[in-house]
Design a protein around this nucleic acid. Structure first.
Lengths: 233, 233
DNA sequence: GTCTATAACCGGATAGAC
DNA sequence: GTCTATCCGGTTATAGAC
């Protein structure tokens, strides 16, 4: 059995140490020089292992990203914790979680371009709709489940079920914008978040209006279909 | 001056013929075997030219895609023409244009995954927000400008200016779904289009309600910012 | 100045010895 | 579990033909 199969390897075993060593060096180099500029040979060399050995632990260069991806999620969750514990207003919770996201991903801006490039490929294990991403995706959506559950906002029952998924989609959209945002400190994305959080909160409120009930139901039926129908959804 | 600089090369000149020859063979092979599986060497061989020659006409393998991309747009425009000439109802026009899109891109489904993978990279010339894509993007949005202009729908003036762009964004979302859609004949995407066209039409109508005016203005201000702020937008 | 052909280079990935 | 040797394909350099 190769180390590839062991998802949560203990870092004290020989293999676990080597794997961690390779990953750390890879992530550092990605951040320093970017993804394309960092060769597998250079990673192996810096980690003091042979090229083939790096491939023993990581099936491909892309798989190094997957490790990075799940680490990002953990950091985001941690950074969101204080907000989710403290705030009760839906808008403040959403705003806090989105800000936490931007803070966490900022150091990886240039690198992340590649990350999400791979993510756009349906055949890539990194694609957020792929079966391989199932776990991470559920965990990501979980943040928004907590966000909604712990807020004071009143949401129609049918919408409540889909809302975390919808907010996750919203987050994906923000990330897409962020990737293309070259402004210093990602100022534009931050402005987008300020404005759009406001809007999302308003929309959720409006969605309760009896007048808009038919529209809401149509929309939700569509979203439910979309969700089920997405491969791996 | 190399052939690379001549965007609209006459196909009767020697070079133009060679360029077209390479492109045709490349696209055929992409369709038959997919992108990754088609090597530049194989393309050159099939076209009866040397490898280096293919690179003389196309700066990189990705640039072959760009040529494909703009051809797709032309086909889409042509396929939309009858609908835009015949229909007057906004919903029917949108529905027709979207169906035309799905028809046109269907033969390239597996190949297009790669296309949009590249497109997701901010540094790629293929990315729809890049300066290099300016022309194609404007032409794509132009379809929706025509769509709106030729319809009977009444739209508030402020919304009217942004609507073509918003519809283009909607189209991009549909394409994203389509890429991940493995159902036969892209049945799921077709269902998504049926449902979402309805929804979009309803939203545009609702947007005129005086009650929703503040929401509309906030949204439009946000969208206008987003548009200006997108690199290359 | 326009075009073609051949021979590398480089880096991701794999095979197989130890 | 780690290494060395090698493959493979995108890309580039270069030499020269028309």
């Amino acid at each position: 059995m190769s180390r590839l199969d062991q998802t949560r390897e203990v870092k004290t075993s020989k293999g676990g140490q080597t794997k961690a060593l390779i990953l750390e060096n890879a992530l550092e180099m990605f951040r320093e020089r970017g993804y394309e500029e960092t060769t597998m040979r250079a990673i192996a060399e810096r980690a003091g292992v042979a090229l083939g050995n790096a491939y023993y632990y990581f099936r491909s260069k892309e798989h190094l990203i997957q490790a990075f991806y799940s680490r990002l999620h953990e950091e985001h969750l941690a950074a969101s914790r204080p907000v989710l514990d403290r705030e009760r207003k839906f808008k403040d919770r959403l705003s806090g979680v989105m800000r936490a996201l931007l803070d966490v991903i900022e150091p990886y801006h240039q690198f992340s371009a590649i990350l999400f490039k791979s993510a756009a490929d349906p055949r890539s294990p990194l694609n957020p709709f792929s079966p391989e991403s199932e776990q991470t995706r559920q965990e990501s959506i979980g943040v928004f489940t907590q966000l909604v559950a712990g807020s004071k906002i009143k949401v129609p029952e049918d919408l409540g079920g889909e809302l975390p998924f919808l907010l996750w989609l919203y987050q994906m959209g923000v990330i897409l914008f962020w990737i293309h945002d070259a402004s210093p400190g990602r100022a534009r994305t931050r402005r987008l978040v300020e404005g759009s959080v406001e809007l999302v909160a308003k929309l959720v409120t409006l969605a309760s209006l009896p007048l808009l009930r038919p529209l809401r139901r149509t929309t939700l039926r569509l979203v439910a279909g979309l969700r089920e129908e997405a491969p791996g959804g």
